[in-house]
Design a protein around this nucleic acid. Structure first.
Lengths: 356, 356
DNA sequence: CATGCCTGTGCAATCGATTGCATTGCGCAT
DNA sequence: ATGCGCAATGCAATCGATTGCACAGGCATG
């Protein structure tokens, strides 16, 4: 509350105006280079402002203009908990979204929420704190919550798959096609007993469901039989890869490839578990992960993974679509294709070489 | 701008007051359970408010109260760039800080900045957007910038080491002591040729400098000679571990341990590089990293690392110290001790066992 | 000389919630 | 019956920037 002012306290527009010998309205216009004001006045006001390093109070401006240039970024899961591990991916997206928003003069409010819908409305948008929301994934939320959020008229976009009949805008990758691609690749290497590790949600709206469908679809296209014994279960935590491997080696000891549909972090623990069990990678078992995090390059063997082209594309699209809505334009959902980045866990010889 | 109101539009305090048959001031007091207002009126106003799901406009309230319940979290490096990789650690801290702030009714604004000082002041605090700042590390910033920030009177805390004569509050771990601990542990395993990989900043204020000092101090205490050939250089990126190993194997082919002072991610790539060079881990070379990220458990061999007890301690302290300042209390810097988490990269046999 | 127009500037209202002070009405004591 | 005090409520100012409208002065034109 108590600042030591440099000389005289120029805190408000009125102070500034007094110092420059004009009215507050003139000062305001002068700072914004209004054509209504004479050049001399503009220069004088601006130089006084600079001298006293005056900054307009944005809270007051926002109130008057009914604007605020803030969007809220919602993490539906609790990232303070252990599951953080799963997502260098999300972190990158957050950073990129932040940069994009800054470019266009918006600030980013970070929020962790469980019950998505009402809170965004009550606490941020209707409260005049933010103009819209970017939601990073549906988390465990019932899709109906998002439909209710639509009814409030709040602009928002969500990162995630497109559901049937959804009336809002989402940006996501085509999980089904990406998963299929992974399996096709493994088959091309000659693998016949291709397992999947997935978190196996029943929910047809979950990403893992789409990935699982892609797995089955690929098997069918390849003429391979779907075998329940080749299906392993994991959560999002690194440790859960161990359990999945333990299970799979029991039900299908002859497996020769695993598509870890959950995430790269789980895939890394899967590889570790396989090694502990005496398997040679990639000779005995080939692995494909999901997300293409940077660490894929630095584990042994380097991990083949599906890249979601996150950095530019996803973040820009989220921001762009949200702004369209804020500006009253309709925004349609987008589905991106993943790409497969092949590394040595699939027999590629392209690991970083070390010349000694 | 154009919402479809449920029935009548109750957007402002005045609307609500009209609907409840009272004045705006009474309505305002009623919502806040003022003892000045009769019980019946309070109930009536609150029920009307609930019925129309009225929410006060926080921007207006903040303007009036000269408050805003927002703090800005500053990432001094650009996390949108590749270096993100280095820090699952930072991400966890952000999540935990967010939770702590929410508990006490504060929101968190995320900001990426290069020139720290002026921007925080101009854009956020003096502009009435935020009440204070938590700065996650000094980045490449000149310490004088922070001293200038002190002069503005803005409440802030910084995550990082305590510098000599610094007049603001910082929370950090004792890098020197932690590094020393790592080296002592390696020596206890019988290693004699202990190398260090560090980003080797000249800057005596850098964390890496303190860690390097700890390394030298430990060698001295142990009666081991400091050897320039045992010093490798890395940046923060995973890839840089490869170069460091290449260099070290050339200058000191007889090394039997490496303390990777940069980060665990670099340590993981160091291990990978060593393996590619035909070294057996941990038999030929023992490794200790820094940060104790979750992945330490899931690489092979599991990585021994220094834990910064980040989740609770660091985040709470940052928040607590900042709030003290906002409330006018002085806040003193704190230095925490790291702890060494021993895993198999140092010969421990405590990796996750797999029972098949 | 009077009217009109244009350039610059200031007044006052506005955004929405809060709060010091004034006001009303009622009960109780003198 | 008059006055005092207290409980409830409303009025109006406030936070700080913005903007529609009114107004002053200068110059040119009929």
């Amino acid at each position: 509350m108590e600042f030591k002012a440099p000389k005289k306290k120029i805190q408000t527009m009125a102070d500034l105006a007094r110092e420059a010998g004009v009215s507050a309205s003139t000062a305001s216009r002068a700072l914004r280079n209004s054509p209504l004001i004479s050049k001399e006045t503009i220069e004088r006001v601006q130089s006084v402002a600079k001298e006293h390093s005056y900054r307009p109070h944005l809270g007051a401006r926002n109130l008057r203009l009914k604007k605020n240039n803030v969007i809220v970024l919602v993490l539906p899961f609790n990232y303070a908990e252990e599951e953080v591990l799963g997502n260098p991916y999300i972190f990158k997206i957050i950073g990129t979204i932040g940069s994009k928003l800054r470019e266009i003069g918006y600030d980013l409010l970070l929020s962790q929420m469980d019950g998505i819908s009402e809170q965004i409305d009550d606490r941020y948008v209707h409260a005049g704190i933010a103009e819209g929301a970017i939601i990073l994934g549906r988390g465990d939320n019932d899709p109906s919550k998002l439909e209710r959020l639509v009814e409030t008229g709040i602009p928002f976009v969500i990162l995630g798959p497109i559901l049937d009949n959804q009336t809002y805008c989402s940006v996501g990758i085509d999980n089904r096609a990406s998963a299929s691609m992974a399996v096709h690749h493994l088959a091309k290497l000659g693998r016949k007993r291709i397992a999947i590790v997935s978190d196996n949600r029943e929910d047809p709206n979950a990403e893992s469901y789409a990935r699982f469908q892609g797995y089955k679809q690929a098997l069918e296209e390849l003429g391979l039989a779907y075998d329940q014994n080749l299906v392993g279960t994991s959560t999002d935590s690194g440790q859960s890869g161990y359990a999945a491997v333990q299970q799979l080696l029991c039900t299908a000891p002859d497996l020769d490839a695993i598509f870890v549909a959950t995430s790269d972090v789980v895939a890394i623990s899967v590889m570790q578990a396989l090694r502990n069990a005496g398997k040679k990678l990639p000779e005995d078992v080939a692995i494909v992960g999901f997300d293409n995090i940077d660490l894929c390059n630095f584990v042994s063997p380097a991990l083949t993974s599906i890249s979601q082209r996150l950095k530019d594309k996803v973040a820009s699209l989220l921001v762009e679509k949200l702004l369209d809505q804020i500006n009253g334009k309709p925004a349609e959902s987008v589905m991106l294709n993943g790409t497969l980045v092949v590394r040595r866990s699939c027999g590629s010889q392209t690991d970083y070489p070390l010349r000694v």
